[in-house]
């Protein structure tokens, strides 16, 4: 992937020649890349380059869009998640997702929001109090939320709501966490807290973050991939991408000389 002493990391996920379509629109044109285990991988690129589509292919969220389809393989620990006998719902338990706009369930309490993914059909959860506490602690929201667990999720600030969504995703104990522009609706302080959180949880989870904010990618990611027009232009160590990219297109994009 890059030539400067790659650390011995194992591969958590691997996309192999992944194509994706929205109806007739060919949004991803054969993407092959690996996602290193317990590291942060950032995906950057201009609007419409396929970066969100790509991460949605990593947990079978793309195909839920009407008219959308996927071809190619996505391996999670070596198993193809598009295999014929694979249940997409189970895939999404292993590969969680946090979206651009914080989307807590507005009618649910903070507590119920955290537990929502664990009991989609109202099942019982063992020791819910401990699950809620652990997830909120991992999402760095416990201190702020522990006394107001019965309040509505929407009573929190935008940054807190996003951390609640992260707690909801972490409660399922996923192995991979996909974050699609998780800070684009947040102010700089809330953004800094999410970035700190990403840093903290990256020794336990494999994280893939899509971001428009290149400084954010430079700050949080170990590996950065640049997407353009549905293809990977360059992928490498973040330090290399932001100081000496190999591809002229990457250079032009990250320095602001595009188009």
């Amino acid at each position: 992937m890059n030539d400067s002493n790659p650390p011995p990391v194992t591969e958590k996920m691997r996309a192999e020649d992944v194509h994706a379509w929205f109806g007739p629109t060919h949004a991803l044109k054969g993407v092959t890349m690996s996602v290193p285990d317990k590291q942060v991988t950032a995906i950057i690129g201009p609007s419409g380059c396929g970066k969100s589509t790509f991460v949605r292919c990593l947990n079978r969220m793309h195909e839920v869009v009407p008219g959308a389809r996927v071809e190619g393989k996505v391996l999670l620990d070596g198993q193809n998640i598009y295999g014929s006998r694979v249940n997409p719902v189970r895939v999404r338990r292993h590969v969680g997702m946090v979206f651009q706009k914080p989307n807590p369930f507005p009618t649910m309490s903070i507590r119920d929001n955290v537990l929502a993914g664990l009991r989609p059909n109202g099942q019982k959860v063992d020791d819910p109090a401990s699950v809620v506490e652990t997830a909120l602690k991992h999402a760095a929201l416990w201190d702020e939320a522990k006394d107001v667990l019965d309040r509505s999720g929407s009573s929190l600030s935008g940054g807190q709501q996003q951390r609640l969504c992260i707690a909801r995703a972490l409660a399922l104990e996923p192995e991979v966490l996909l974050m699609d522009e998780p800070c684009s609706a947040l102010d700089p302080i809330a953004t800094a807290r999410i970035e700190e959180l990403i840093h903290e949880i990256s020794d336990r989870y494999t994280i893939v973050i899509v971001t428009h904010n290149m400084q954010q990618a430079a700050r949080v990611a170990d590996t950065t991939a640049f997407f353009y027009q549905g293809e990977i232009v360059e992928v490498g160590e973040t330090d290399q991408i932001f100081t000496r990219p190999k591809n002229q297109k990457t250079e032009d994009y990250i320095t602001g000389r595009f188009g």
Binding site: M214, Q215, A218, F242, T243, R244, P245, T250, E251, I254, T255
Partner: peptide, 9 residues
């Protein structure tokens, strides 16, 4: 500007 790549260099 938070320059990167060739600008940063």
């Amino acid at each position: 500007r938070q320059p990167v790549a060739s600008d940063l260099r």
